[in-house]
Amino acid sequence: MADRTASADTETPCGCKIGRVTEGYGLVDLDDDLVAYWTGDGDEQRSTRELATYVNQRILEEALTNADIPPKEGEIENTYRLLTDDDVSSGTRVQTRNELQRDGVPVEQVESDFVSHQTVYNHLTGCLEASVETPSDEERLERSEEKLGALQNRTAAVTTDTVDRLERKDILDIGEFTVNVSVTVTCEDCFREYTVRDLLENRSCDCQKENVGGE
């Protein structure tokens, strides 16, 4: 159960960076959204890193709208990825920034207004006085499994995209293909190997259970 000790619905924005961004871009109800997502239950709960992305995408969306560029579905997420993702080449990032600049988007100002996850955390706990209870072991395991699953999916997507590009440029010759990503964990005591999902479900290597049973 989450506990919020102060309302985010204040008439005057706070003086921190998120407060200034909220006022500057007219991000109505941003504080309420941040608290709701941070203190939500289950799938509704988001980490401060995810919330930083949420804030930054809201900033980018407002900047595009103010430049009379109605964003298409998925455009905000993709443009933000091109501007910030480490997997994006410098050439692609420069091209994206130039295109936005040409369309009237003040890219440098927008990027300087992007916030970090630490800024989000400070805003939530300091300005909004929000708090969440420490998650249970089961909740930690569930979130860990979701996070690792997302990373595997991302690896598969990046690999698929890379192979596609190489194939289109006739650098690689391949027919229809699928990419499967499997991560295993090996216990160095007994050399048993587990998928991440199995290990998280078991919560222990079998050899550890055997050791306990033999004591």
Rank of each mutant, 00 (worst) to 15 (best):
E77T: 11
T84I: 08
P71D: 13
E73I: 12
I69Y: 08
A67C: 07
V88A: 08
R58I: 04
V88F: 07
L83H: 09
R81L: 11
I76N: 03
T84C: 11
E61Q: 15
E62D: 08
T79M: 13
N66P: 00
L64S: 05
A63I: 01
E77Q: 12
A67K: 02
E75K: 10
D68K: 15
P70H: 07
N78E: 15
D85P: 05
G74I: 09
E73D: 15
P71W: 12
L82Q: 05
E75P: 07
T79F: 11
G74T: 10
E73L: 13
I69P: 02
K72Q: 14
P70K: 10
D86F: 07
I59W: 00
E75C: 08
A63P: 00
Y80E: 02
D86S: 07
V88P: 01
D68R: 14
E62I: 04
K72W: 10
D86E: 05
E75A: 15
Y80D: 00
T79C: 11
L60R: 07
L64P: 01
L64C: 08
T79H: 11
V88D: 04
L82Y: 04
R58Y: 04
G74D: 13
D85I: 08
N78K: 15
N66V: 00
G74C: 11
D86Y: 05
I76C: 04
D87W: 04
K72Y: 13
V88N: 03
P70T: 11
R81E: 14
I76A: 00
L82A: 05
Y80G: 02
P71M: 15
L83T: 06
N78W: 12
G74W: 11
T79N: 09
E75G: 09
T65Q: 04
P71N: 15
A67I: 06
L64H: 05
N66W: 03
D86L: 03
D85F: 10
D87T: 07
I76H: 03
D87V: 02
D86M: 04
T79P: 08
K72I: 09
P71K: 14
E73V: 12
P71S: 15
E75D: 11
T84P: 06
N66S: 02
E77N: 12
Y80T: 05
L83P: 03
D85R: 10
P70N: 07
E77L: 12
E75R: 13
A67P: 02
T84E: 10
D85Y: 11
N78H: 14
G74Q: 14
P70Q: 10
T84M: 13
N78A: 15
L60A: 01
I59Q: 00
E73C: 08
T65D: 01
R81G: 06
P71Y: 14
R58G: 03
L64F: 09
K72T: 13
L64N: 02
I76E: 00
T79G: 09
D68H: 14
L83G: 03
E77G: 04
T65N: 01
E61M: 12
K72R: 15
E77Y: 13
T65C: 03
D86T: 04
I76T: 05
I76W: 06
R58A: 08
G74P: 12
L83E: 03
T65K: 07
L82G: 00
E61Y: 05
E75H: 09
